[in-house]
Computed example of a mutant assay.
Amino acid sequence: MDERKRESMIAYLRRRMAKVGMKAADVAAALAEDRLRQKSVRYRNAFGDTWDGKGNMPQWLQQATSAGQSLEHFAIAAPVKPADKRRPAVDWSKDPFAGSRLATLAP
Rank of each mutant, 00 (worst) to 15 (best):
G53W: 07
G21W: 04
R14P: 00
D91P: 00
K94E: 02
R14K: 13
A98R: 15
K23S: 14
D34I: 14
V80A: 12
G21L: 07
A32P: 03
A67Q: 08
V90P: 00
K23E: 09
V41Y: 01
A30H: 08
P107L: 15
V80G: 00
D34P: 00
D52L: 03
A77P: 03
R44S: 06
P96M: 06
W60Q: 05
G48S: 04
M17I: 05
Q69C: 14
A98T: 01
S8M: 11
A28M: 11
G53T: 06
R35A: 15
A78S: 08
L31N: 08
K85T: 01
A64G: 09
A75S: 06
A11S: 13
K5Y: 02
E72R: 13
R44Q: 10
K94S: 09
R87P: 01
L102D: 10
S100F: 09
L71A: 07
A83M: 03
I10Y: 07
L36Y: 05
P82N: 11
K54C: 05
M22S: 03
I76Q: 08
V90S: 00
Q38M: 12
I76P: 01
P88L: 10
L105N: 08
Y12C: 06
L36C: 04
D52A: 06
A75G: 01
Q62R: 11
V80Y: 05
K54G: 02
P107G: 13
A46M: 02
S8R: 14
K19R: 14
S70P: 00
A46T: 03
G53H: 02
D52I: 03
K81P: 00
A106R: 14
K54N: 06
A106Q: 15
D52T: 12
G53D: 01
V90L: 02
T65R: 07
I10M: 08
G68H: 11
I76L: 15
A83L: 14
D2A: 08
A29T: 11
E33C: 09
R101G: 10
S40D: 09
W60Y: 11
M9S: 11
K81G: 01
Q59N: 12
Y12N: 14
T104D: 14
P79T: 13
W92P: 00
L31Y: 09
M9Y: 10
Q38T: 10
K39T: 06
G53L: 05
W51G: 01
R37D: 12
K39P: 07
A18Y: 00
Q69K: 15
A30M: 07
G48V: 01
Q59I: 06
A11F: 14
A77L: 13
M1L: 11
K5L: 13
Q62G: 04
A78C: 02
M22N: 05
S8G: 14
A78V: 13
Q63H: 10
H73D: 15
A75P: 00
R6E: 04
T50A: 09
H73A: 15
P107Y: 10
V20Q: 09
K81Y: 07
D26V: 11
K5R: 13
V27Q: 07
T50Q: 03
L61W: 10
A77K: 08
T65Q: 06
R87A: 09
K85E: 00
P96R: 07
A106W: 09
L13W: 07
G99T: 02
R87K: 03
D49N: 15
R14T: 06
L36R: 14
A25H: 04
A98W: 15
Q63C: 01
A30Q: 09
A106E: 12
D95M: 01
D2V: 07
V80E: 10
K85R: 01
K81H: 02
R15M: 12
K23C: 04
P96G: 04
